[in-house]
Amino acid sequence: MDLHRRVQSQTSSTSTATPSKHAFETRVADVKSPKSDINALILDYLMMEGYPKAAEKFQKEANLKPRQEDPTINARQQIQHAIHVGDIQKAISDLNELDPGILDSDPHLHFSLLRLQLIELIRNARGYDPSAAINFAQEKLAPRAASNEQFLKELEKTMALLIFPADKLQPDLAALLHSDLRRNTAAQVNEVVLQRHTERREAAIRQLVRMRAWAEASCRSKKRNLPDRIELGLNGDDNGHDPMVTT
């Protein structure tokens, strides 16, 4: 009986024992990033991604010093919103109004927007007369594709949407109708505008995340002693850190 109780006691204590922290996690827990630095990163993200109202509200709540006004932030927000809802003509018009030379200086961006506009025409023409989409492709995209092999491949792929039913599309064609393409194109436009007007393409936090991923991959390739999984700490993970978003 005593032996049985002893085994039960050992089993219970083993199952409830808190696992010891990896040495790396202990070192990380000792490093506390100032909330002011984290808040500055968040504000930078909101400004760079084109969220003026959220940036203004966060700036007040976090008691941050006013940043230099970005004259493009409202226009960038409107352009991205137009792309997200599929109004590509408005996005192109607003983009030209913001920066008249931007599309002429970036043929790839211009073609991406025109192709997305063609996709929206095809989407709206399903089950109806596709002549508007065909005419648009002939007038706006075909001349550009004639002298660029990559443009030609993308145009041919897009026109295939007119041939196959929506439920019979191969994954690479179905991806053209997915909202991710709108989102990626909007991000591409935002980056180009930022680079032309601020000499930066993206928010600082994106660079930090890539740097962190590179550092981890580099250490693992050199067989450094790391935990099997390293959390980013964005949601208050069980690593002793506060959530990244703080006010």
Rank of each mutant, 00 (worst) to 15 (best):
R126T: 00
E199I: 07
Q170A: 14
S33H: 10
P165Q: 04
A160C: 15
M1L: 14
H22T: 05
L162R: 01
R196T: 13
K53P: 06
D30A: 14
R182I: 01
S13C: 09
A40P: 06
E61Q: 14
R6F: 10
P66T: 03
D44M: 04
A125M: 01
R27M: 13
E139G: 07
L181Q: 12
E69H: 12
A17N: 13
P19Y: 04
L118W: 02
S12I: 15
F136K: 03
D70R: 02
L226S: 03
I88Q: 03
S105V: 10
F151S: 01
S218W: 11
L113K: 04
S12N: 14
R224W: 12
R210V: 11
D180M: 07
A133T: 00
S93G: 12
N96Q: 13
A203M: 03
Y45F: 09
V28Y: 06
G236V: 08
N225I: 09
M48P: 01
H4M: 15
Q8C: 15
R229S: 14
R220V: 02
K32F: 08
T185A: 04
S179K: 13
R210Q: 14
E154P: 03
A75L: 09
L113W: 03
S13A: 10
N190D: 07
L116D: 01
A133I: 02
H108N: 11
L95V: 05
